[in-house]
Amino acid sequence: MNAETTNLNNASLIYYPNFLSPPLATKIYDQLLSLSSWKQEPIKIFGKEIMQPRLTLLFGETDMKYGYSGIKMETEPFPDFLRELKNDCESVTNTSFNVCLANLYRDGSDSMGWHSDDEKELGDKPVIASISLGEERMFHLKHKTNPEEKYKKRLQHGSLLIMQGSTQKFWKHQLPKTKKGIGPRINLTFRKIY
Rank of each mutant, 00 (worst) to 15 (best):
A25H: 05
T26E: 11
D124P: 00
I28L: 15
G183N: 08
I128N: 03
E61V: 07
S159F: 08
K150Y: 07
K72N: 12
P42R: 13
H143A: 02
N9C: 08
G158C: 08
A3P: 00
N103C: 10
E49N: 07
M64V: 13
E121C: 09
P53Q: 13
Q168K: 09
S12T: 08
T178I: 08
S34T: 12
F139L: 08
K65S: 14
M138R: 15
Q168A: 10
E76F: 04
P53C: 09
K86N: 02
E136Q: 15
T5Q: 11
K177Q: 14
K39G: 00
T56F: 11
G134K: 10
L24G: 03
M1C: 03
E136I: 15
V99T: 15
D80G: 10
G108F: 11
L175A: 06
P17F: 02
N103D: 02
L104S: 06
H157C: 05
S91G: 03
K65Y: 10
M138A: 11
G67I: 10
V127K: 04
E136C: 13
F59K: 03
L161M: 14
D110M: 07
R83M: 14
P79I: 05
I45R: 06
I50G: 02
W171T: 06
L33V: 14
Q168T: 08
R54I: 12
G183V: 05
G47K: 10
L175H: 02
M64C: 10
E84Q: 11
L58M: 09
D30V: 12
L101F: 14
T56K: 05
A129S: 09
F170W: 10
S132G: 07
I186T: 01
A102C: 14
L82M: 01
F190S: 05
I193D: 07
D117N: 11
T178H: 08
S116W: 05
D107Q: 13
R54W: 11
P184A: 14
E121Q: 13
T93E: 00
A129I: 06
W171N: 04
G60C: 13
M64P: 05
E136N: 12
L35N: 13
F78E: 07
I14Q: 13
S69D: 04
M64L: 15
T145V: 11
Y66W: 07
S130K: 06
R185Q: 03
L104G: 05
P17G: 04
Q164D: 13
I28D: 02
N2G: 00
L32E: 05
K86V: 03
G123R: 06
R185V: 04
T95W: 00
D118W: 08
R54C: 06
H140P: 01
R185Y: 01
P23R: 05
Q52L: 12
D110T: 14
K142N: 10
